[in-house]
Amino acid sequence: MLEIRDIRTSYGKIAALKGVSLEIREGGLTCLLGPNGAGKTTLIWTIAGILKAQSGSMRLGDDELAGLKPHQIVEKGVVTVPENRLVFPEMTVTENLVAGAFSRRRQKGDVAEDLDAVLDRFPRLRERASQEAGTLSGGEQQMLAVGRALMARPKILLMDEPSTGLAPIIVEEIFEIIGQLRDEGRTIFLVEQNANLALDYADHFYLLEQGHVTFGGDPATVDHDDLIARAYLGARKAS
């Protein structure tokens, strides 16, 4: 669905992405693994238009995303669930969800239907619909961030470290939600530090090291321990 070719992104003179190429496949969960500082969040921000690529191509079907502004990329159907949730803390749960449909604000009837569907999906959000988002637990805020993204009717969900700062039992719950979305045929690009869980849910994965994609494949065909050792310890597991 989304083809990324030779993307290069820098912070000033510091090159963060050094010619990244990968594909986010339609109707599946593609996972990006790598150590801290590898450029994973930089790639999410580049796809989302928050950072501008110096060169390269990001094609969604016939549309070129490179060079578009963030709101234009959302309108094309590429929507981000950011790291640390970033909900609007002084707005209610309902107001946060409606904000996610800003690009569809003229479709009032459809937005109302989608709001009801999201609240059905996340009963705890329905219970707290009039509550300020900043008073929710971390897990509830993560559900809200996912629900807010769904309100945009995304073609692709970009999910950046959804397990950050959450208790293990809540992480499992969040991944069950991610698995449900994948099973519904949604296209997901997941950046995640919890490699074991991510590989359990992924249909395809890539390894990013120092701004380069160094490996990619089907999680079922690789030794997970070996891959995780390479991704987070910088070396292959001793044989």
Rank of each mutant, 00 (worst) to 15 (best):
K155F: 01
K155C: 02
I156W: 10
L157S: 05
L157Y: 07
L158E: 01
L158W: 04
L158A: 01
M159C: 02
D160F: 00
D160W: 03
P162Y: 06
P162I: 09
S163A: 11
S163T: 04
T164N: 05
T164C: 08
L166F: 08
L166W: 09
L166C: 12
A167C: 10
A167D: 10
I170A: 08
I170W: 03
I170N: 06
E172H: 13
E172G: 09
I177T: 15
G179N: 14
G179A: 11
L181Y: 07
R182A: 13
R182H: 13
I188M: 04
L190E: 06
V191P: 08
N194S: 02
A195Y: 00
N196D: 00
L197P: 07
L197Y: 04
A198Y: 04
Y201C: 08
Y201E: 13
D203P: 06
H204N: 02
Y206Q: 05
Y206G: 12
L207I: 14
L208E: 10
L208T: 10
E209N: 15
E209K: 15
Q210H: 13
G211V: 05
G211R: 05
G211C: 13
T214K: 15
F215W: 12
F215A: 15
G217W: 05
G217E: 14
G217N: 11
D218H: 11
P219Q: 07
P219H: 11
A220R: 15
V222A: 12
D223H: 07
D223M: 02
D223Q: 09
H224Q: 08
D225W: 02
I228H: 03
A229F: 03
Y232I: 04
G234D: 13
